[in-house]
Design a protein around this nucleic acid. Sequence first.
DNA 1: CTGAAAGCGCTTACAG
DNA 2: CTGAAAGCGCTTACAG
Lengths: 338, 338
Amino acid sequence: MRVTIKDVANKAQVSPSTVSRVIAGNGRIGKDTILRVRQVLDELGYHPHHAAQGLAKRTTCTLGIILPRTPDDVFSNFFFPELIRGISTRASRSGFDILMATGSLAQEERESLTRMVRGGRVDGVVLLSSRLEDPLIRLLEEEQFPYVLIGRNDYSASTLSVDTDNIRAAYELTQHLIAQGNQRIGFVAGPANMIVNRDRLEGYRKAMEEAGYPVQNEWIIDGELLQQSGFRAISMLMELEDRPTALVVIDDGVCFGVLRGLGELGYHVPQDISLAAFNNIALSELSTPSLTSIDIGTYQLGYTAAHQLLLLLAGEEKAKSRFIIPHRLVVRESSLRK
Amino acid sequence: MRVTIKDVANKAQVSPSTVSRVIAGNGRIGKDTILRVRQVLDELGYHPHHAAQGLAKRTTCTLGIILPRTPDDVFSNFFFPELIRGISTRASRSGFDILMATGSLAQEERESLTRMVRGGRVDGVVLLSSRLEDPLIRLLEEEQFPYVLIGRNDYSASTLSVDTDNIRAAYELTQHLIAQGNQRIGFVAGPANMIVNRDRLEGYRKAMEEAGYPVQNEWIIDGELLQQSGFRAISMLMELEDRPTALVVIDDGVCFGVLRGLGELGYHVPQDISLAAFNNIALSELSTPSLTSIDIGTYQLGYTAAHQLLLLLAGEEKAKSRFIIPHRLVVRESSLRK
DNA sequence: CTGAAAGCGCTTACAG
DNA sequence: CTGAAAGCGCTTACAG
């Protein structure tokens, strides 16, 4: 059935070892032998069997990722595809493929990762995000398995990671709103166990503090509530005596929800309230009003993460273990002074 | 380093064969032997090596997909993540993982697929879309490799495929616009070499014909133009003497572009022109106006495709080879009579 | 420059 | 019920 190295060896009248060496391109082989073997390789259309090669060489040429478990979490995950595209493109350039597993529960996530790592299915893992005391990170550390984290880590300082300076980004985004004349600025938050969300909240607080503007607790609302209880959260916010004139929103996807909610309540953006968010997904430019957003270089994050992991696997020593991808404030209609 | 079946065998004082059988759960093994082996398995934290297992069993427990090559094609691909989630979830349930490869060029795409298939990396392939005379389909057919196609096929009628009835869906969507009082209806098309796009165009034409409304050629514009030449295409369309009062748009992503373009030209939707599109991505509900769209059951498409492929791999004979996932018209603001 | 042999970690007839 | 052996398809010291 399958054309093996043995078939090639027979036809070319050499030993399998020689065929293997010709393919690998190393080892000193006679010129005419090389030519002859190459010829047969072509004729038979030989293609190495990946598992066999992997078994012998102890390598898989595969990177693993765990798909974020978002059963129906429509928000906040529009940028994962772009991230994965970056990872995949870089991997592909080194002949690596991506093995992807899912887990709808935290438990399943762990199991998927274990299967990958302990089963020797991948050479390294890219973690797409990190939460507080992340069990996946713990697992990887215990196994001493090569991985790169997209995000920040509360676990081990030496972790190879690629990240946005989210504190800084949130700080700048808030400053932009302040520069537009806003003094009462609210924050639509994401799940508090994600480190990226904590960082963004911190940056926002810092900017407000520095400007000498107080932050009211009622101004900070949970973005997840938007899904469950419709737009009650927004409605309550807008009915406050001292309601904010602007909102920093954790993510463009959530921001679309906020925008819609405000619209249904009869408010106009930016006339009645300004909005500014993070991630700059493709649709942010196309919405009406277009969304002011921090472009975090999503593709670049993924690309760089894969790149650094590949370097690590190649045994190249790195000077540093933490890489920051520059972000960029993209000002659009949603936040411009009315 | 790695705990092998041999280590377990030694410690449990049995042969590797026996350990293998205990793990597989087949073969008649003594009760106490089973218990003893299981015990050691646990103690040592044994995990089978995937490549070795695959080599011996000639199976990979992996499904392959080729990531659509969309370097910067922001439109029309917002539903792929959802599709992949469906595939991945179903695969995961049978202990299968997903191997993902990219190719930015058609050439690279072919190579990625070849590597997967000829390298024995996957047991089957899920094709995420199909074009006319698709080279990937040809490759798979030549290799006689198991695959399922999400979409329709101009190649071989017996191909296992899971699809939307796009002709019907477009027909219904157009009928809806007609029912809203529109007589001049235009169409924003996608790349003509994608079969899904042809089908949708056909359904639109059919509905128009049946209603006795003529279709002008100038009413059919190329959605890809929206990206390159800004909104010139839309501007030209709207300046026509007999301009359409409604547009069927090939995809929600493209529809966002159209919406934005109309907005910049000073037109209001649906007051000045109605819009209706396909795919019903998550954001369609959140836009202002919200988008009327055909929900194609994206997740279900992916899930079913994986399911059928898995059945095929398991050797289960299927009665039919083509599965249609029901679609559903979701009427929202963008198409409602003014 | 080239081949025979052992080995990667598993499975599975074949014997008993 | 269990083990020894051969084999999956490749690679890589070891010899020569």
